[in-house]
Design a protein around this nucleic acid. Structure first.
Length: 560
RNA sequence: GUCCCAGUAGCUCAGCAGGAUAGAGCAACAGCCUUCUAAGCUGUGGGUCGGGAGUUCGAAUCUCUCCUGGGACACCA
């Protein structure tokens, strides 16, 4: 708001050569409070006006006037604006109070659909820390999109097909034990899968055996199908436990195998467009023009491959949803694959190919290396979550043993800590797995945020605050930083959504909450002279904090 | 070998459509609970922003180059 006003006035003063957008993008927020609330650097104007920046700044400053501006100063080549705190505070609080549930929302997405491909664990493999990233990032992006008005479709595209299952079936023939699988499915299946890989180092015929089993599966061989279905069912049950803990639901859970009988049509289309070529016995689409290696469509033994499935799935999804965007929340290591899929779709003349977006993220590493199921080096998410919950529980025992609902709150805090630990980092960075970091509940963590929320709620409870008595006319210098952060929420949502970056929300919440904690420490809220007005601000703060946490998929307990 | 990503405080990371003295958290040290939940607050120390060159009034941010780490590079997904 104030930024737009500043931009408008400045562009007016500067003349046509300097658009409002140009000025708007130059306006910054000073790092230090004594430099004001908004700033505009005049250095780049110096060569145009052939005058020094200082003079330009002071001349422009003298013409900036508005009810929102308390004072306009200059310093060096900068114009610094101090806002009218009382006025802006009242306006901000009122804005939240008008409709607390929609503060920060936007409506530009209304009527449009965003499809998210996320989580996608592989059956017969443990739900690892790596899958956590796709799951929680996807969930947060979906929440952000909905906050901007979009309809979202969260798809859990289960990895239930491919040569790896041929290998698993072969492994089961050699080392499988029905009883063990019943008792502890993922562990046992992973064990024989790892065993298969070790054995195949010495005996390469095993690899061929695996391919043959996959071929049997693709040809609907009865035994292969039966085992495959069994593995799938037990795996899905295990995954559901994790989703339950995370509090994440999908709109659609669908395996890759769903597309088995639809891929022929895709291959036909490619043939009709004369895009297919034979190469070393396999069918490929050449992408030389695009500077990419060829995209493999059909293996030399005639079986399918993931590119074909992803192409088929993309076409199917566009026909079903006519999505504005299809987000693939998948690790960075698959960048080339998605580039290829997009190029093939473009070659098929689908003009919506550019609406597919690979939301790539860094890997979860152990010892600086990629985790690998094959080498048996994976860390189970369920174990980590349970450990975090337990740690939260012991904190409660230590700090607040009389708390009601201990179990539920320990779950909210523990799970919240794990989710936040993941989302606070830029998603593109690799993350070195550290249980210790995840079990830290101080500083830049979810429990820090939740704790502030609890403190706020506690004040409202003790002060017997009711919305009817809300008072937006707070006059308080120490509240100003908090008010400014509350004011920033809508544009943070906007930016996080357009950049597909949940970490912006995480960082915002930390800044917001730091401002609250400082205010809380230096200002007595209850029994003071402005109790009602102060409580109103606290109320507004809790609204924004809880809403932001919910965007990240983290709960805000009332007590802890 | 080719392409992509990263290198900022002891550790984990912000900042990167160029802007004022490079910021947090953890760890270390020193304070703050007879008053609103100390999972908190305040303060101190800690940096040749991987090296070098360039563009600019101004570079952690843009360009080039080199070094280091990671990833991808057709019958896994």
């Amino acid at each position: 708001m104030e930024k737009h006003i500043m931009a408008l006035q400045l562009s007016h003063l500067l003349g046509e050569q300097f658009s409002r957008e140009w000025v708007y993008n130059k306006i910054e927020i000073p790092k230090k409070p004594h430099l004001g609330d908004l700033a505009f650097p005049c250095f780049s104007l110096a060569s145009f006006f052939k005058r020094n920046p200082k003079e330009i700044a002071s001349q422009l400053a003298s013409h900036l006037k508005h009810d929102l501006f308390y004072e306009v100063q200059t310093a060096g080549g900068y114009i610094n604006i101090f806002l009218n705190q009382a006025f802006v505070t009242e306006q901000t609080i009122k804005q939240v109070l008008t409709d607390p549930s929609t503060y920060g929302s936007h409506s530009f997405g209304t009527g449009k659909t965003i499809v998210l491909d996320m989580s996608a664990p592989n059956i017969a493999k443990p739900f690892s820390m790596g899958h956590l990233r796709s799951t929680v990032i996807g969930n947060a992006l979906s929440n952000l999109a909905e906050k901007c008005g979009y309809t979202t479709v969260k798809i859990n595209y289960i990895g239930d097909y491919g040569t790896q299952f041929g290998k698993l079936l072969a492994a089961y023939q050699h080392w499988g034990n029905e009883q063990n699988v019943r008792e502890n499915p993922l562990k046992e299946l992973t064990k024989i899968y790892v065993q298969f890989h070790q054995a195949s180092k010495d005996d390469s015929s095993l690899i061929e055996e695996g391919r043959e089993w996959f071929k049997k599966l693709e040809q609907q061989d009865e035994e292969a199908l039966k085992l495959w279905k069994w593995f799938k069912d037990v795996s899905l049950e295990e995954f559901d436990k994790v989703y339950e803990l995370l509090g994440i639901e999908f709109d659609l859970t669908r395996g890759e195998a769903y597309y088995n009988d639809k891929m022929d049509k895709t291959v036909e289309m490619l043939k009709e467009k004369q895009l297919l070529e034979e190469s070393e016995g396999a069918q490929v689409v050449r992408l030389d023009k695009e500077g990419l290696p060829p995209c493999l469509i059909q293996k030399s033994n005639g079986t399918s491959i993931y590119a074909t499935r992803d192409l088929t799935a993309a076409i199917d999804r566009y026909q079903t949803y006519e999505f504005e965007e299809a987000l693939y929340v998948v690790g960075h290591e698959q960048s080339l694959h998605f580039d290829q899929v997009k190029e093939v779709l473009r070659n098929l003349d689908f003009d919506w190919a550019d609406q597919l977006k690979h939301i790539s993220f860094g890997m979860m590493l152990t010892g600086g290396k990629k985790m690998s199921t094959r080498q048996g080096k994976t860390i189970l998410l369920e174990e980590v979550l349970n450990e975090a919950i337990q740690h939260a529980a012991s904190n409660i025992e230590e700090k607040n043993p009389e708390l009601l609902n201990k179990e539920e709150i320990a779950k909210q805090v523990g799970v919240g800590a794990v989710i936040f630990h993941d989302l606070k980092h830029d998603r593109r960075n690799d993350v070195e797995f550290s249980l210790e970091d995840m079990l830290t509940f101080e500083g830049n963590t979810a429990p820090y945020l939740q704790y502030a929320y609890v403190r706020g709620r506690s004040l409202l409870e003790k002060g017997e605050f009711h919305i009817e008595q809300a008072d937006a006319s707070l006059i308080e210098e120490t509240a100003w930083p908090l008010v400014k952060w509350i004011r920033h929420y809508p544009e943070t949502v906007l930016k996080a959504n357009s950049n597909h970056d949940p970490s912006l929300i995480a960082k915002f919440l930390l800044d917001l909450t730091k401002a609250f904690n400082k205010y809380y420490a230096e200002t007595k809220i209850l029994h003071g002279d402005q109790q009602n007005a102060r409580l109103t601000l606290i109320y507004v703060f809790t609204i924004v904090l809880k809403d932001g946490l919910s965007l990240l998929g983290i709960e805000a307990p009332e007590h802890m």
